[in-house]
């Protein structure tokens, strides 16, 4: 800090130093951005719906797409967060992926194998089946328009931003919980990898044009927090994810 040590710096040197510093600064900010992007990028693989044939729906011939997901009581079983369940092996999760990719203008049949237990919804509306073909889903082979709000384990709720540039898409399907008694009786689904036993829920909905949507679970499963919507519910990628509807 001693003034007497001042050295004259030539103009050229000064400009070079300023430009170097500018690049350095931009590089630092860029590196932070790149790291954040990498760290926070969707860690899961995408789950693609497979198209198999066409189906006649309301007089239109639509591609028939199929997609299957599981809902697991822990992340080890869901396999969507690495081999050992990732940073929170105890958290419930959808699997094997939480970013769903669906074809546009298609009749999508979704099968959910659900293995978790449950209690009561915060908002009973989500015990209704909404937005599917005929507003019903089949629960272990039985079609129904809703289940009891006290029998829910999770929900699959798909929604998006209202906008002129993409078609609205809203689907809500409640998933029935697995209770201890069920296990001895007629639980139709058994997960081959984990021996989890559960229910199978099948429903279909029709996609519009290409667009970006999200889905999340409306069942309060983030334990220990206010309204049970913290922890796993607030973390993203466990009980929530993206839905991309794509052309072609």
């Amino acid at each position: 800090m001693d003034i007497s040590t001042q050295t004259e710096v030539s103009g050229g040197k000064r400009i070079a130093s300023a430009i170097a510093f500018l690049f350095f600064g931009v590089a630092v900010v860029g590196a932070v951005g790149f790291t954040l992007h990498k760290v926070s990028a969707d860690p899961q693989a995408k789950m693609y719906a497979s198209v198999n044939g066409t189906i006649n729906y309301n007089g239109q011939n639509l591609k028939h797409a199929y997609i299957t997901e599981g809902v697991y009581p822990d992340s080890v079983a869901s396999k969507s967060h690495g081999p050992n369940g990732g940073s929170h092996p105890g958290w419930p999760s959808y699997g094997p992926a939480t970013h769903l990719v669906l074809p546009a203008h298609a009749y999508v049949t979704m099968t959910l194998h659900v293995y978790d237990s449950g209690e009561h919804l915060n908002t009973n509306y989500f015990a209704k089946v909404v937005g599917t073909v005929e507003n019903t889903a089949t629960f272990d082979g039985v079609a129904a328009a809703s289940i009891l709000p006290t029998d829910v384990q999770h929900t699959f709720t798909l929604h998006g931003l209202p906008t002129q540039t993409q078609d609205p898409l809203f689907v809500n399907v409640p998933l029935p919980r697995v209770v201890a008694d069920d296990k001895g009786n007629n639980i139709p689904t058994k997960d081959p990898g984990t021996n989890n036993q559960g229910h199978t829920v099948v429903f279909s909905f029709v996609t519009g044009g290409a667009g970006e949507y999200v889905w999340n679970c409306e069942y309060p499963c983030g334990d220990g927090t206010y309204a049970k919507f913290g922890a796993v519910m607030g973390a993203g990628g466990f009980m929530s994810g993206k839905v991309s509807v794509v052309n072609g």
């Binding site: 500018l22 600064g25 931009v26 906008t163 002129q164």
Partner: peptide, 28 residues
């Protein structure tokens, strides 16, 4: 945000980068 807001947001982002560069120059 919906695609409807894309122009206004793009304008904002361009302005933000200019502020960022200006601040780096000031720091230098």
């Amino acid at each position: 945000y919906a695609a409807f807001y894309k122009n206004s947001n793009l304008v904002s982002t361009i302005g933000a980068y200019s502020v960022g560069i200006g601040m780096i120059v000031l720091l230098w």
